[in-house]
């Protein structure tokens, strides 16, 4: 199971990559593997200001629809449009091409609440 050291994680199996005041978000390798073939990614919250733990989209895999949650508060400044036509990118490359949203963080201190790679490893083992 691939868990990059340079990322932060949530207990909802999302990863966060910090780039200045922007957080790039996707789901983990573990999550995509658990879900199976992803057939639809729905994110229609671009430009919205959302709080930590709000739902920012949904994802469908093998007849299961799951919500996607904000790991930190902020404004969604970009959505990965590629996923609309290629949802399988989340399966094939969850940490790069399968990224989902970019958040301009309003409360960057919330990053401290996220899990480290080691803590996330412990959660899923």
């Amino acid at each position: 199971m691939n868990i990059p050291e340079n990322l932060k994680f949530t207990k909802d199996h999302e990863w966060v990559k910090v780039d200045g005041d922007v957080a790039i978000v996707g789901i983990t390798d573990f999550a995509q593997n658990e879900l199976g073939d992803i057939v639809f990614v729905e994110i229609e919250t671009e430009d919205e200001d959302l709080e930590k733990e709000d739902v920012f989209g949904t994802i469908e895999a093998v007849k299961t629809v799951s919500d996607l949650y904000m790991p930190v508060s902020g404004k969604i400044i970009e959505v990965n449009e590629e996923l609309e036509s290629k949802p399988e990118l989340v399966n094939n490359d969850p940490y790069n091409e399968g990224w989902m949203i970019k958040i301009k963080m309003s409360k960057p201190e919330q990053l401290n609440d996220l899990l480290t790679a080691a803590q996330y490893q412990e959660l899923i083992s």
């Binding site: 909802d12 999550a31 299961t64 899923i124």
Partner: peptide, 8 residues
Amino acid sequence: EAGKLVDF
């Protein structure tokens, strides 16, 4: 547990 919910 989140992540272990889906098992048809």
